[in-house]
Amino acid sequence: MGKGWIFDGHIAGLGTESGLRAVLGLWQRSPFGSFADAMVELPSGHRILLAPTAEIGAFIASVYTFDETGVVDVAVSHDGPRLDVDAGPLSVRAAVGARTRLGGLVRLVPRPLAVHPRWLRAVSPLAARISPGARTAGTARGGRTEYYGVTDLHHITAARVSWDGSDAGALAAVRPAVSFGFSSVPAAPSLARVQTTVTGS
């Protein structure tokens, strides 16, 4: 499989009525230690990465596509039904609800299998049909390959999101899909338990 980077934690995806969409990474274990980052697509389509260090920002930008990268303090609190994120101009206060039907299904798959690249390559076409725009395996920037092993999924039921001090509007579906890489997040706002594996030079 070649050299690999493993990121273990959560990914939250949400949209707002203003058209701002955000993908939040909360990583408990990674080659860079524990950290969080935010990928934001503005209503104009402008894509911004908010990362806690230049090193982390450079790595993420080598895998995904952005128009701008900012190094900012990223503060995250994830305590059961609450998810709070502050990352430079972005503020999110979200309520995490019940497990989704898909979350119940993926929990039936033993974790060692659910995060294995061979399994994720095999189920990627099915994942795209179940959740349009979402894939579990694909080619990232620089010829790298990326795998998303989702082992749980919960609804985000409400959120207050602001950008640069302005209210971004009520919680909404992630539409249009974000365009940072080969895969989007589910259209319905959600919080996924995930292990992401990136391979290649």
Results as ranks from 00 to 15, higher is better:
1 M>G: 14
1 M>D: 14
2 G>Q: 04
2 G>K: 03
3 K>E: 13
7 F>G: 12
9 G>Q: 02
11 I>E: 11
13 G>N: 08
14 L>S: 11
16 T>R: 06
20 L>A: 09
22 A>D: 07
22 A>T: 09
26 L>K: 09
27 W>A: 07
29 R>I: 06
35 F>R: 13
35 F>N: 13
35 F>D: 10
36 A>T: 07
38 A>L: 05
38 A>W: 08
40 V>S: 04
41 E>R: 08
42 L>S: 03
42 L>I: 03
43 P>N: 01
44 S>F: 00
47 R>P: 05
48 I>C: 02
50 L>Q: 10
50 L>Y: 02
50 L>R: 02
50 L>G: 00
54 A>N: 07
54 A>V: 06
55 E>L: 13
55 E>F: 05
63 V>T: 09
63 V>Y: 02
65 T>A: 15
66 F>L: 08
68 E>K: 02
69 T>M: 13
72 V>R: 12
74 V>E: 06
76 V>S: 10
76 V>Y: 04
77 S>C: 14
80 G>P: 00
81 P>S: 05
83 L>E: 01
84 D>M: 03
84 D>P: 00
90 L>M: 07
90 L>Y: 00
90 L>Q: 05
90 L>N: 09
91 S>K: 15
98 A>F: 08
99 R>W: 05
99 R>E: 14
101 R>N: 01
103 G>I: 07
104 G>P: 03
104 G>D: 11
105 L>H: 00
107 R>W: 01
109 V>Q: 05
109 V>M: 10
110 P>L: 04
111 R>E: 08
111 R>P: 03
116 H>R: 09
118 R>D: 15
118 R>F: 13
119 W>N: 12
119 W>S: 11
119 W>L: 14
120 L>F: 08
121 R>W: 05
125 P>M: 04
127 A>I: 14
127 A>C: 07
129 R>V: 13
129 R>A: 14
129 R>H: 12
131 S>G: 11
131 S>L: 15
133 G>E: 14
136 T>Y: 05
137 A>P: 07
138 G>E: 09
140 A>C: 14
140 A>Y: 07
141 R>V: 05
145 T>K: 15
145 T>R: 15
149 G>L: 10
149 G>W: 12
155 H>F: 13
155 H>L: 15
157 T>G: 02
157 T>S: 12
163 W>R: 02
165 G>W: 10
165 G>F: 11
167 D>R: 08
167 D>M: 02
167 D>K: 01
168 A>Q: 00
168 A>T: 04
169 G>F: 00
171 L>M: 03
176 P>K: 03
179 S>I: 01
181 G>D: 12
182 F>K: 04
184 S>I: 00
185 V>Y: 03
186 P>N: 15
186 P>L: 07
187 A>F: 05
187 A>M: 09
188 A>Q: 01
188 A>E: 14
190 S>L: 01
191 L>G: 00
191 L>N: 02
191 L>E: 03
192 A>H: 05
193 R>W: 11
194 V>K: 06
197 T>M: 01
201 S>G: 11
